[in-house]
């Protein structure tokens, strides 16, 4: 599988990062098998978080067995110094490892949160101490929030080494600032900050729970994923061709093999095919019916 350098971290990540939330839906034996399966494809970057149910615990055994082969990303939703320390200790315990390679501020959404984490008593102060103590190697940030917020974070956090954000044809087809994650990608590239793409496989939102109760959803993802092998492949190619360092796999274990296959075969995507995908999605969502042309 192709690798790309993750910003200035010195690590070359595979073009696919395994989103270990998928382990949460499996029993321990199945989780072990899935990690082996992912490693068989050569994937070397695994991303997890304490809020993904039991994913940290279920990743633990195989993570420890293959610790040298895995670049481990973890996260915290805590915004304060103390909270960040507390969750970092807890994650180290649950994962059963001495150190985390990439520790990320998880799900930054509001300007106030950026103020909080960068303040004297903020989470990043804890990150930096942990880094000095060798408990984490690199600092990252993840967000589904407004692209401007991520741009601000890139400007304000000097030691930020990776950002994780949504990128897919639906997002790329929208011109407004609210969806301009391409600007985030460009700024991160300028700063040589690594880029990790999420929601690459999002097909749309789930129907309302009145229409389809949560318990009847066929996939564990927060969004309705694309599920056909060809669509998975197109979505992977699209995200990887946008220039992300690595594309994070979808959260449902049923989709992981298809994504691994797509990632293993990744060989770029030409511009006309990339536009074709944006155009298809645009028409699927278009509020203007009856268009004969593109």
């Amino acid at each position: 599988m192709q690798t790309r350098s993750l910003g200035d971290t010195g690590h070359d990540s595979t073009v696919m990062t395994f989103g270990a939330i998928a382990l949460n839906w499996l029993e321990q034996e199945g989780a072990n098998q899935l990690v082996e399966h992912v490693l068989d494809y050569g994937v070397n970057h695994v991303d997890v978080a304490p809020t993904y149910g039991d994913a940290e615990l279920k990743l633990g055994p195989k993570l420890r067995q293959h610790r040298e082969e895995i670049f481990l990303g973890c996260k915290t939703q805590e915004r304060t110094y103390e909270g960040a320390w507390r969750t970092l200790d807890r994650s180290l315990n649950r994962l059963g490892v001495d150190a985390i390679d990439l520790y990320q501020v998880h799900g930054l959404e509001y300007d106030e949160e950026l103020d909080a984490i960068t303040g004297d008593d903020g989470a990043l102060a804890a990150f930096r101490e942990a880094k000095e103590q060798g408990l984490i190697d690199h600092i990252g940030l993840t967000s589904h929030g407004h692209p401007d917020l991520v741009l601000d974070a890139l400007d304000r956090i000097d030691d930020l080494e990776s950002v994780m954000f949504p990128l897919n044809p639906v997002v790329a087809g929208k011109d407004d600032d609210e969806h301009d994650y391409e600007a985030v990608l460009a700024r991160a590239d300028e700063r040589n900050v690594g880029t990790l793409g999420i929601k690459a496989f999002a097909g749309g939102t789930w129907p309302s729970t009145d229409e389809l109760p949560e318990s009847d959803r066929p996939f564990a993802n927060w969004y309705r994923p694309v599920t056909a092998p060809d669509e998975i492949r197109e979505r992977f190619d699209f995200a990887a061709a946008q220039g992300l360092t690595s594309v994070v796999s979808a959260g449902d274990p049923k989709l992981v093999t298809m994504i691994l296959e797509a990632a293993a075969d990744y060989d770029g995507m030409d511009e006309a095919a990339r536009r074709s995908l944006i155009e298809r999605v645009r028409h699927d969502e278009s509020p203007v019916p009856e268009q004969l042309h593109h």
């Binding site: 006309a272 155009e279 028409h283 278009s286 019916p289 009856e290 268009q291 593109h294």
Partner: peptide, 20 residues
């Protein structure tokens, strides 16, 4: 220039042509 290849004739395009 090639703008689209392949051209995505979506369900909404197909329906619009059928209506026509």
């Amino acid at each position: 220039r090639t703008l689209l290849e392949p051209v995505p004739w979506t369900e909404s395009h197909v329906a619009a042509h059928a209506d026509e």
